[in-house]
């Protein structure tokens, strides 16, 4: 699970996060909404260990044994999953697995890609020929390969066509049903509403609203979001 308590972070006297507390339980998908500069990426970077907080505490633990999870065991899917363009999907997956200390045979690698919805015919194509959605799938396969229990996603649906976006939702739901903890930062109200169990709205580094997605329709979520943004 992910637990942030009273996290504050400033850049040159500019507050990026102000006393932020939130938690994501295992088997839960948490959608973090907010405008540009609201602090979504800062939150993810703190969780990934790329930034240190000024105050507060962060706990990322395995739901099974409650042990702290090392950074290289976290699954991270950036906004643009850019890969080595001259390598194929399967070669990229192989490389990313190897650099995290894992070594799989080609069948296992294929299975992982298939599991993420990447068709067999694409496995050996260079990723320079891939669409963004296909690269996302390789990105998810990379996270899956290391048996990550925690997934952090930064604008995963940005630039994806509706079909690919929907496929992503399906994959994420499948992962959460297997007990994964997923935190997803996004602008996309509709996709967050469709994919996530819990939604938080960030504004100027503060978590100003938390709700369960089952309690709101997409229209209501939009209304709530706009109201908070304008207030």
């Amino acid at each position: 699970m992910i637990k942030l308590q009273n996290i504050s972070k400033s850049f040159k006297n500019e507050k990026a996060l102000d006393n932020l507390s939130l938690s994501v339980n295992s088997g839960e998908i948490y959608g973090l909404l907010g405008a540009n500069g609201a602090g979504k990426s800062t939150t993810l970077n703190l969780l990934l260990g790329f930034l240190d907080s000024d105050s507060g505490s962060i706990e990322i633990t395995n739901s099974k044994d409650q042990q702290a999870i090392a950074r290289d065991k976290i699954g991270y899917i950036p906004e643009n999953v850019n890969l080595y363009p001259y390598l194929s999907g399967i070669e990229n997956l192989d490389y990313f697995c190897k650099i995290s200390g894992l070594s799989f045979n080609s069948q296992k690698l294929k299975d992982l890609l298939n599991e993420c919805g990447l068709e067999d015919g694409s496995h050996n194509k260079k990723t320079s020929e891939y669409s963004k959605g296909m690269r996302q799938k390789v990105g998810i396969a990379i996270a899956l390969a290391k048996n990550a229990n925690i997934y952090l996603l930064d604008e995963p649906a940005s630039g994806l066509d509706p079909m690919a976006s929907n496929e992503l939702s399906v994959i994420l739901k499948k992962l959460s049903s297997q007990g994964a903890t997923i935190l997803m930062a996004s602008h996309d109200l509709f996709r967050v509403r469709e994919t996530c169990d819990k939604i938080g709205i960030l504004k100027q580094g503060c978590l100003i609203k938390e709700m369960l997605s089952k309690d709101v329709t997409s229209n209501e979520l939009e209304e709530v979001y706009l109201n908070f943004m304008q207030s």
Partner: peptide, 9 residues
């Protein structure tokens, strides 16, 4: 911009 992904891995 996938240096972060590398770092994570």
């Amino acid at each position: 911009k996938f240096n972060n992904l590398i770092s994570i891995q």
